[in-house]
Design a binder for these strands. Structure first.
Length: 674
DNA sequence: ACCCCCTGACTTTTT
DNA sequence: GTCAGGGGGT
């Protein structure tokens, strides 16, 4: 196999197939290309069967992209059986295969964050019922324990204060309830396989034999439990490649441990470290600025990005009197730049910010100027109420013990099962130690019990259990369509939507969802319960081919947080709100956690291919009050010779700036008014 | 059951 | 300043 288009280091990373390999891949250094081509190399040249190769990523998007690229390079036939999935999807498949060993039922449901929060709230921890903040902290603590591989008993023993003690108790209760509901949460999808692999030599051996080569993307984002999972999967002399960049670690607040990179060197003394330092994305000056900035952070592995692209224009720093002027400045500049560029597209421009709330004013200004835009990270498909409703029906069909699903839909659409009935049902279920749905069923059998609410409960219980029976027997998709029709969901949508158009839009969403269920059911798999498997997969939000549509070249200005921008690139980047207390964020300053904020700025800078513009405000109205803002310390850390810093070169008075801004805007407006 | 007003939050989020 | 979500009133 010839290896064109790869540089020396990339080739080295690709050819190293013995023992543990760490690839330190700087921003824009062609890391995805290396991983995908390495998989092809392993299959084609090293004759490792595709089914013995596993690659894990953090997002569905990354997994999908990788899979596509590999099968394009190696052909669909050669890649048959190759596993490219997210950590969570891998964990899910693991559990579905090993459910017997785990003493679980095959029809477990997956709880998302909201489900688990609802459960925690329900566990009767008095203080947390009213105090949302506390409830939230509790959920995060439980999640953190799970990510650290700490079980309830250990949490209890390690508790340092009264609060921790109480939290640990709730954790224990939570774990027991999850078992009763036959449910797992997202963290369990990693935790459960890790514990089984750790404790069961037979299972461990089986999986280590299956996986002859493991690849891990975005390694710096792994948490403790993911680290251990990988360790147990590859065994002591494992052959694997992990790819990561400690400078782009921006998720430590949710358990990611960039230290896992150093830990790897300690756990595997023969670890081969390969650095990819040539950047194919940015102009030289942008890279220089990024390097200088990140040099202020301590490093376990030193790395210096370089590029043979042109040096490029100085990075501009634009100081604005206030946030309105900032937005106007950015938007009018994007318009004029786009018009001036031949074949200029709005999608060449990105506006990046620290917090979601910062998008609002830019959105408003873009609308006012008729500029098409796209904000990433807005309400997702699965957050839509109609999708949550139907998902709850699907969950209840596969797992009748899923009380969260039951509660969501018991009275949706309205069928006269109000709070009073539900409370009675809850009490009954609690006494009998059964789920709410099972309680419905039992009450249904007690013919002598009378009451309007009870009749409704009976009817509901009959409806769902009949559907569940039929679904298990065969045509589950037909059964679901039938169920959706029987509950009158279509007319319910029309009742609850403001316009008929909105109702039809929501109805279409449901049709789309049901289409995925249909596609997701794999009758040929040896899974004992293909329908349940399909529903579980949907909880992990892998939307299969939906994104193909979404990702077609859109001519829209891209707006997103710095976190969401990781992995992407844009010709022209506007990094807005470059002020102290924004970037670095106020709470990070207070917690003395500047390094991760610096990495965030680094990620933002390295997104830019050609030009980079920082903007900041002198004054900003925060929470109704006008506040004076300080320029971000990161601006001071950048190489000043490479900056075109307006305010420093010729400081204008506030009035002059305001005048200038107004002039520019009216000039541009008259230019593009039509 | 529904609506309206008040209160509190204003870091980041995938699965 | 603005929005969401809870609580309380009708």
């Amino acid at each position: 196999m010839s290896l064109p288009q790869l540089n020396e280091k990339q080739r080295e990373a690709l050819l190293a197939t013995q023992g543990p390999i760490l690839v330190l891949a700087g921003a824009g250094s062609g890391k995805t290309s290396v991983i995908t081509r390495k998989m092809v190399y392993l299959i084609k040249e090293k004759d490792i069967p595709a089914r013995n190769i596993v690659a894990v990523t953090f997002t569905n998007k990354a997994a999908r992209e990788m899979k596509q690229r590999v099968s394009k390079l190696a052909g669909a036939k050669a890649t048959q059986g190759l596993t490219v999935s997210t950590f969570h999807n891998f964990g899910l498949n693991f559990i579905r295969r090993e459910y017997k060993k785990l003493r679980m039922k095959s029809n477990f449901t997956i709880f998302d964050d909201q489900d688990s929060l609802a459960l925690i709230k329900d566990l009767g921890f008095k203080e947390a019922e009213s105090d949302k903040q506390l409830l939230f902290r509790l959920q995060q603590q439980i999640s953190a324990w799970k990510n650290e591989l700490i079980l309830p008993e250990q949490a209890y023993n390690q508790a340092k204060d009264q609060e921790q003690l109480i939290f640990a108790k709730v954790y224990e209760k939570y774990a027991r309830s999850m078992k009763a509901y036959n449910a797992v949460d997202f963290d369990d999808l990693i935790l459960i396989p890790t514990l089984l692999l750790r404790d069961d030599p037979e299972v461990r051996e089986k999986w280590q034999n299956k996986i002859r080569y493991l690849l891990v993307d975005e390694y710096q984002d792994t948490n403790t439990s993911q680290y251990e999972l990988i360790k147990h999967l590859v065994g002591q002399f494992g052959h694997f490649t992990v790819v990561g960049d400690d400078d782009q670690s921006i998720y430590s607040w949710r358990g990611a441990r960039p230290e896992n990179l150093d830990q790897l060197a300690k756990d595997y003394p023969h670890l081969q470290v390969i650095k990819l330092e040539q950047n194919y994305r940015s102009y030289g000056r942008i890279l220089k600025a990024a390097n200088v900035l990140i040099d202020n952070n301590p490093h376990a592995f030193v790395k210096k990005l370089w590029s043979d692209k042109p040096y490029g224009d100085p990075l501009r720093v634009v100081t604005c009197p206030n946030e309105d002027a900032e937005a106007e400045k950015v938007v009018t500049e994007i318009i004029s730049r786009k018009v001036r560029t031949k074949n200029g597209r709005y999608s060449d421009f990105a506006i990046l910010y620290r917090g979601n709330h910062q998008s609002k004013i830019f959105e408003r200004t873009l609308i006012a100027n008729n500029v098409p835009y796209k904000i990433s990270g807005s309400t997702s498909f699965f957050a839509r109420s109609e999708i949550k409703d139907i998902m709850a029906y699907l969950r209840l069909l596969t797992n009748p013990d899923d009380d969260n699903a039951f509660l969501r839909i018991a009275n949706t659409p309205r069928r006269g099962i109000g709070p009073t009935t539900l409370e009675q049902l809850g009490t009954y279920a609690q006494i009998r130690h059964i789920s709410l749905f099972a309680a419905c069923h039992e009450i249904g059998l007690e013919q002598h019990l009378q009451g309007k609410g009870l009749d409704n409960v009976r009817r509901f219980s009959d409806l769902v259990s009949r559907a569940a029976d039929n679904a298990e027997r065969g045509d589950s998709v037909g059964v679901i369509h039938d169920l959706v029709a029987r509950i009158g969901y279509h007319s319910w949508l029309h009742e609850t939507s403001s316009t008929p158009k909105a109702a039809e839009f929501r109805w279409n969403n449901i049709q789309e969802l049901l289409g995925w269920v249909e596609k997701g059911i794999d009758d040929n798999s040896n899974d004992p319960n293909p329908f349940a498997a399909a529903v579980a997969n949907l909880m992990l939000r892998d939307m299969l081919d939906r994104n193909e549509k979404e990702e077609e070249e859109s001519n829209e200005v891209q707006l997103m947080t710095l976190h969401a921008a990781k992995g992407l690139e844009f010709n022209h980047v506007y990094l807005v709100g470059m002020e102290e207390e924004f970037l670095p964020h106020k709470s990070s300053i207070e917690n003395d956690d500047i390094e991760e904020e610096r990495r965030l700025a680094y990620v933002g800078i390295t997104r830019a291919q050609r030009t980079l513009t920082f903007t900041l405000c002198k004054k900003r109205s925060k929470y109704g009050e006008v506040m004076t803002c300080e320029p971000s310390r990161f601006l001071e850390e950048l190489p000043q010779d490479d900056l075109d810093w307006d305010a420093k070169r010729k400081p204008l008075t506030e009035e002059e700036q305001e005048q200038l801004a107004t002039d520019n805007i009216s000039m541009l407006k008259s230019l593009f008014a039509d």
